[in-house]
Amino acid sequence: MKEGLTFIKENIKENRSVSIFLLLSFMPFIAVMMTNYLFPIYLTQELNASPAAYGIESAVYGFGALTAGVFIVSIMKRTGTELAIMLNISLFALGISIIFFMKFLPVYFSIVFLLAFANAGTRVARNTFMIQKIPNIIVGRVDSFFRFITLGIRILLIFFFTYVTANDRIGLAFLGLSLLLLSSAGAGWILYKRKQRKQSALLKSVL
């Protein structure tokens, strides 16, 4: 982790948007870890689902992730790696933002499929982005540093979610997760658009 941080300081500090963009791309993964805690409570308290719903949810999630694995390479070829990351983060943020209000089990399973697709798609695109931007000899150490940061975020969120769900306020937990993801998506789009404008201005100056 120390070597990863050193590399970031020495090589990415000139383009801080790269490191911020990478951190934002981890947000769906963080959210998935949180939903592993929230979804069982949501199924029980809000949807009054039977135990079979837990198994169906896992199957739907697995199918969504598998679908992303099949199509994400084609998506990246058409959109580019960074845009693919942003589209998947935005899809995930949208799904989390509406899932609490769609209290109908088939709709819930449909959103779980989209969340699985978006999370797996973001992970593949993020790994591709890191390989493109970071030398192979150090990419694992940089990835470890970002995972250390995301672990700290997950610990803080677990404290918050444990408190609110213990007080029968699971809606507040979903609201907090939604705000985190929407903010991440918004910040990511700002960075992406800013880079596009810089590239466009550079191209015009060359021409």
Rank of each mutant, 00 (worst) to 15 (best):
F113K: 09
I75H: 07
A201L: 10
S74W: 14
A65W: 10
L38H: 01
Y192P: 00
L181C: 13
F39V: 09
F100M: 04
P40E: 09
F21W: 11
I89W: 10
I56R: 03
F148R: 10
E14W: 11
M33Y: 14
A187I: 10
L207T: 12
M102T: 15
Y61T: 14
T122Q: 12
Q199P: 00
K204H: 10
I149Q: 14
L105F: 08
S50C: 07
L47C: 00
F129R: 02
A68C: 05
G55Q: 01
A65I: 07
A59D: 01
F101T: 09
V124S: 08
G176S: 11
I99G: 03
K198N: 14
N136C: 05
S184L: 06
P106Q: 12
S183L: 15
L23E: 04
V139H: 01
I98P: 06
L22M: 13
Q132G: 13
L66Q: 03
L38W: 02
S183R: 09
M33H: 14
F109M: 10
T150S: 15
L202P: 00
F159H: 09
F29H: 15
N15I: 12
F146Y: 15
I111W: 12
G140M: 00
S110Q: 06
L24G: 03
V60E: 07
T6R: 12
L172I: 11
S90I: 06
R78S: 14
L180P: 03
T79L: 14
L203P: 00
A201C: 00
R197F: 11
I20H: 05
I137T: 11
I56V: 11
I190T: 02
G64M: 13
S97W: 09
Y192T: 02
T165N: 14
R126H: 03
A187G: 06
G152W: 08
I20F: 10
S144P: 08
L179M: 13
L47W: 01
G121N: 05
Q45D: 09
